[in-house]
Design a protein around this nucleic acid. Structure first.
Lengths: 240, 240
DNA sequence: CGATGGTTTGAGATATATCAAACCTCGTGG
DNA sequence: CCACGAGGTTTGATATATCTCAAACCATCG
């Protein structure tokens, strides 16, 4: 039996474009791999040899300058696609933020398979277009928003993206609010990583956390946990 | 005779994926349109009803905050694709920076045509992936680079992107250097627009221009013209 | 416990923003 | 043809958000 049959992202990842037989073929060229938090799957500037689907966990995409400044240029969640198909080079590193599980393909195998299955390519196109939209909205944050606005925007986006779709309709109690995102969640980022997403320093991020808490927009039960106390206020702080 | 036959971007735009007959069909659903500098083709948040290929000219993609801060999130050149296919909303405005000419399609017509022609979708996918790479590299600039580095990076990118491919092999004299980009070019941006690309203010941009000139990296024959005097130095200033 | 790595808080430095004025450039009309 | 005006640009002086450097703090794990 193909591993795909029991895959929890089967219906949300680009694989949803495939029927049972096609999926069996794809399964033959792919393999699963577990990653521990902190482990890297690809490195910046490397030849593009692998692509993958995220099954579980959160990973970051990052680049940096010669002199060591780092910028996280994307964050991927279950069902997202990673890697650079149809091109020779990966422009950013990929590193697991939490323990993660991915479904890996050799790039050339995947490229060939995708070209032969337009429905799959179409899904990949839709996903890439959506990611481009999201990335461009992030440019507004990096270019024009204040530190406070950046952190507020970031927390709001996280609260939406961390919702596990399978659960979105199962609950709508305090754990998972169907409409507006999670009220409480665990950060898959350290303070330094948040700084690297927002283009700030760790100290500025920390100060904005304490400020948002002092103003009653959020609560911080522990370092890695955030509760949104006043969503309206947080949205106002995000200033879109 | 189809207008496409004489189109100067015929072999570089996504249309290159199509044969003569397919092109004739596409031509039936498209129309040309001229835009004057400053004219907008789409607005932020609008329903996505149009998509287009750029034939001639330079256009900006931009978003802003409620309170009027603006960020240019992309710049498109001849043969680039604009608009948001397969999605209901355009997340950014599209405005001509120079006089321009585009090949316009109704989005639903284009979507249908693209789905029926996988080779076209494939080209669009490659283009979207390349644009996503470029956009992510821009995030590093916005998140982590100084004003001087931003302007230097911007000028270097412009000098590459403004090369007219048709000429790239015809000349390699002082006008168009095949390898390293133009040595001298006209800015399709005002100072304010450059500020909006780089996430800076107009004054900071101006000061960095005069600094780069004083250091001998560039020359400014006029407000709208730039000559790269010392490319090495400019590259060093860009600090990648 | 005591060490260790991440985080928060503090004080001061600095790059960029802001506010304001002077300066070009170019088109217009006298 | 020249003066004028209007936008855009440059330069200057000052303010401020964020960074930098440094110390205190706190959880976690041996």
């Amino acid at each position: 039996m193909a591993a795909c049959d029991t895959c929890i992202v089967r219906n949300r990842a680009i694989c949803a474009a495939l029927d049972h037989d096609e999926l069996a073929l794809l399964n033959q060229i792919g393999r699963r791999r577990n990653l521990s938090a902190g482990e890297s799957l690809m490195w910046e500037g490397e030849d593009s040899i692998l692509v993958a689907n995220v099954i579980e966990g959160v990973l970051k995409l990052s680049t940096g300058t010669e002199d060591g400044r780092e910028q996280i240029v994307g964050v991927v969640y279950p069902s997202d696609f990673i890697g650079r198909p149809f091109g020779p080079t990966t422009f950013h590193g990929v590193t697991a933020l939490t323990d993660a599980r991915v479904c890996l393909f050799g790039r050339s195998d995947f490229d060939a398979f995708a070209r032969a299955h337009p429905a799959l390519e179409h899904k990949l196109l839709e996903r890439t277009l959506a990611e481009l939209d999201r990335t461009r909205r992030w440019m507004l944050l990096l270019g024009r928003k204040s530190a406070g606005e950046r952190l507020a925007s970031f927390l709001l986006e996280l609260s939406e993206r961390l919702v596990i779709p399978a659960c979105a309709h199962a609950f709508d109690d305090e754990t998972a609010a169907a409409e507006s995102g999670l009220r409480r969640f665990t950060l898959p980022f350290s303070r330094q990583q948040i700084a690297d997403v927002l283009g700030l320093t760790i100290e500025t991020v920390s100060r904005q956390f304490t400020r948002l808490k002092a103003e009653g927009a959020i609560d911080l039960p522990s370092r890695r946990e955030v509760a949104i106390v006043d969503r309206r206020l947080l949205e106002a702080e995000a200033g879109n």
